[in-house]
Nucleic acid binder design. Structure first.
Length: 183
DNA sequence: TAAAGGATAATA
DNA sequence: ATTATCCTTTAT
């Protein structure tokens, strides 16, 4: 099992999004080590992408997104759910990958499909915002034998306000996985 | 299908 | 200080 490096995250967001599929999200909590296999992600490209938070410019909330790559961007949505993103590309680009669904590997309880439920079962909340994903208690790693699978491209979810950006195929998931939130 | 819920950013 | 908005989920 190999922890992903800073260089991995600093590349093109779409590339990182596709390569995050099949990787393991690992979180050490007081209750024990939790592991989920990433099966669905979305790419948010930067300020020019109207669906991205960074389109609003640099604010208190989005500053993590504009920071260096390999950090977690966690925020509260609709007052009751958390969403977890991974910052990509060099600092200042404002790009990130949203984690939408994982498959339970270890110590996960409840459903793990959908950004809110993913965070609930992985015990992610906004205290983990700006947390370094190269740390030892919260990180992403490649499982030992690299797997082979087909990747499906679809439009992103919940971004109808973003005009033509809503139509772009920036959501990726593992073909045939029973754990994706929306086929 | 709509209500819930709270932080955030824009407006005043 | 007030309001509109939000990368969702759950229950009616």
């Amino acid at each position: 099992m190999q922890k992903l490096t800073r260089a991995f995250y600093s590349r093109d967001t779409v590339l990182v999004a596709r390569e995050l599929l099949g990787k393991w999200l690992i979180h050490h909590t007081p209750a024990g080590q939790k592991i989920g296999r990433i099966v669905e992600v979305e790419a948010y490209l930067g300020p020019h992408d109207l669906a991205s938070h960074s389109a609003k410019g640099l604010t208190k909330r989005t500053q993590t997104m504009f920071g260096p790559p390999g950090y977690a961007y966690v925020y509260l949505i609709y007052g009751m759910h958390h969403c977890m993103n991974v910052v990509t590309e060099p600092a200042g680009n404002g790009a990130a990958v949203l984690l939408r669904a994982v498959e339970p590997v270890k110590n996960l309880t409840g459903k793990t499909s959908g950004p809110g439920r993913l965070c609930r079962s992985m015990e992610i909340d906004r205290r983990l915002n700006a947390h370094d994903l190269l740390s030892d208690d919260f990180f992403i790693a490649a499982p030992d034998p690299a797997e082979r699978f087909a990747i499906i491209k679809r439009p992103r979810i919940g971004v109808d306000y973003a005009k033509h950006w809503a139509k772009r195929h920036l959501r990726f998931y593992i073909k045939g996985s029973a754990f994706v939130s929306q086929p």
